[in-house]
Design a protein around this nucleic acid. Structure first.
Lengths: 222, 222
DNA sequence: TAAAAACCATCGATAAATTATGGTTTTTGC
DNA sequence: GCAAAAACCATAATTTATCGATGGTTTTTA
């Protein structure tokens, strides 16, 4: 009987234990599952590094929010995903996230391109089991909310460049336009111009930033 | 008992009859299914137009390849999807296609943004039933091959403009570079320059067009 | 092995983006 | 309600990127 080795990373121990109990008790065709758990970025990255010398994990389950032990460098599950891709390229990476917002999902789809993305509210015993089956045999596996975000992004025919996306992102987190020059290497008038330009693309000329944010969210940019 | 009204369009009658027999015989929670069928673009568009005056179809299943009666204007299932969106915006649109190539799927995701996309080789009784359930209650529904194409596209961080995509498309169908000036409104040197530029973006400088095509296919552009 | 096609480099012309400047209007905090 | 801040807007100069013409070399193809 083959063993599928899984590493589950989440700062809430109850969550990873849930995954462990469900998956190790599940009946699969032709294999059993073993689940390791980690609570921090550092512990998880160490386990991944060590695993590649012996038996790499088949699947790595990552929460996005990881409250790191070392305060001064906040590392997220996304960073851990990037690291996992580098040191353990054969492992399948699956995000288990509370976030179903477009910006997060888009970002992770580009930086990690995970084999799976599950929104936590949609996780149950059945979906966990099909995730394992699908990811090992025929990826990807996305839950419905993740799929809806992905669909929204795909349907979009407007392509903004990196600076435009940064502007939208900073708007969404409340950065003042005049402060964006500290985060984006563009002059203030240019940023203003680009905002106008994006509004025109979105068909909301002569409207304020609130309208822009709401439209950008609707179109899956943030 | 509610009735879900479905229109299935395919130039092969056996296919639509298959959908009809399977779905009308299936047991669903709280509803039954009725399936109309069409073999041509004209017949289908007429049925859709008429339906909106009485009871619009809940779901419209579209094959991409439709050999039209009227030879001189070839209309595809994609055109029918666009039309369906206009005249019957409440209907869910699902493509049932032999194509699983990225170019086709990307194009349809942008022009129609369907509630579902099934690659024909992956269609069976169970998947047909879950498609109907998912599309009516919580879209979208994509089969694994469609999902794989979508994932590839999402993972892509390079964004090419329309002209670049046209160049890649024409390369993929064997159009000679010097003949592209008849299809793309750019001069020959510009097209050559753009090809060089795209190769640089793809990290395949100083390689030939074959490498470019293969890389573009790999990255989900064609 | 010719001829065709692809590939490459340079350069002037053109178009587009950026930025500085100086303003007006709207929002915000007291 | 009012002053200050921020957002918004228009113009013009400057920089940058793109385009297309020309003339060539290399590679493919018949």
């Amino acid at each position: 009987m083959n063993i599928i080795r899984i590493l589950a990373v989440d700062d809430h121990e109850m969550t990873t234990l849930g995954y462990k109990f469900i998956l190790e008790d599940s009946e699969f065709d032709g294999f059993k599952v073993h689940v390791d758990t980690s609570k921090t970025f550092e512990e998880a990255s160490e386990k991944i590094r060590q695993s590649v010398n012996r038996l790499p994990y088949h699947i790595i389950l990552l929460d996005i929010q990881l409250s790191s032990n070392i305060e001064h460098k906040e590392k997220t599950g996304e960073d851990l995903g990037v690291l996992a891709r580098e040191v353990s390229p054969e492992s399948k990476v699956v995000f288990m996230s509370s976030f179903s917002d477009n910006y997060r999902i888009n970002s992770i789809m580009q930086s990690v391109d995970p084999e799976g993305y599950m929104v936590k509210s949609e996780i149950d015993e059945a979906s966990l089991q099909s995730m394992v089956k699908t990811v090992t045999s025929n990826p990807p596996y996305y839950t419905q909310k993740a799929l809806a975000a992905i669909r929204k992004k795909m349907a979009n025919r407007i392509n903004l460049d990196e600076n435009d996306k940064k502007i939208l992102y900073h708007l969404s987190i409340g950065t003042k336009t005049k402060d964006m020059i500290n985060h984006i290497s563009l002059s203030l008038p240019t940023i203003e111009n680009r905002k106008r330009h994006i509004k025109a693309l979105f068909g909301i000329e002569k409207q304020n930033d609130q309208a822009l944010i709401s439209e950008a969210r609707d179109r899956g940019f943030i």
